[in-house]
Design a protein around this nucleic acid. Structure first.
Length: 182
DNA sequence: GTAGTGATCTTCT
DNA sequence: GAAGATCACTACG
């Protein structure tokens, strides 16, 4: 654990590398166990049709956050990998600030504390002000593990209807903290 | 365990 | 007007 976060790579590569990374948002967070990659050529990506006010951060600097509202209710967190490419953080193993996250989520089980992009956003206390903020402080932190975990598996992404043949969902094999089994 | 529905914001048709 | 990178609640087997 501990190497600095270096961005500027393709989203699928970064998505795989982020498994096992440590994510902390203002004192709450844990180990990343599930991610998804989205690119510009990808019909399922927000960036596919070009920049809009909402997805502007996705075309901003790599290593910054892209936070968007999902289904009018939830806030989801992405890491910008390259212009128009980002990695959606889908699930964490809770580690830091668990009490605070439980409080924000309101008596949900520990298993469902950060299992899913919307739940994760609520547990971390994300706001739209986090959109476009850099990882590396003062609010957002991301530490890659020294070595890439070997037990990373890939599968189809969740909740999309286009480009479902791409195996761009990555997860820590056998982890009980995944939003769904692979 | 599965199935249906409501909540409510951004974009596209 | 409809769909979407979602979740929680309810009803029913």
């Amino acid at each position: 654990m501990g190497s600095a976060f270096d961005a500027g790579q393709s989203a699928p590569d970064l998505a795989r590398r982020l498994i096992g990374a440590r994510l902390v948002v203002r004192g709450a967070g844990g180990i990343v166990v599930e991610t998804e990659a989205y690119t510009r050529d990808d019909p399922a990506s927000h960036s596919h049709r070009g920049p809009t006010p909402r997805n502007a951060a996705m075309f901003g600097p790599a290593g910054h956050a892209y936070v968007y509202r999902s289904y009018g209710i939830h806030l989801c967190l992405n890491v910008v990998a390259a212009p128009g490419e980002a990695v959606l953080i889908r699930a964490l193993q809770p580690l830091t600030g668990v009490d605070l996250m439980m409080q924000r989520r309101g008596r949900q089980g520990l298993r469902q504390l950060c299992a899913g992009p919307g739940r994760l956003g609520q547990a971390l206390g994300l706001t739209l002000d986090d959109n476009g903020r850099p990882f590396g402080g003062p609010d957002l932190w991301l530490f890659l593990p020294g070595s890439v975990p070997e037990n990373v598996i890939a599968g189809p992404r969740i909740g999309i209807t286009r480009a479902t043949e791409l195996l761009w969902r990555f997860g820590l094999a056998g982890s009980p903290w995944l939003s769904r089994r692979f």
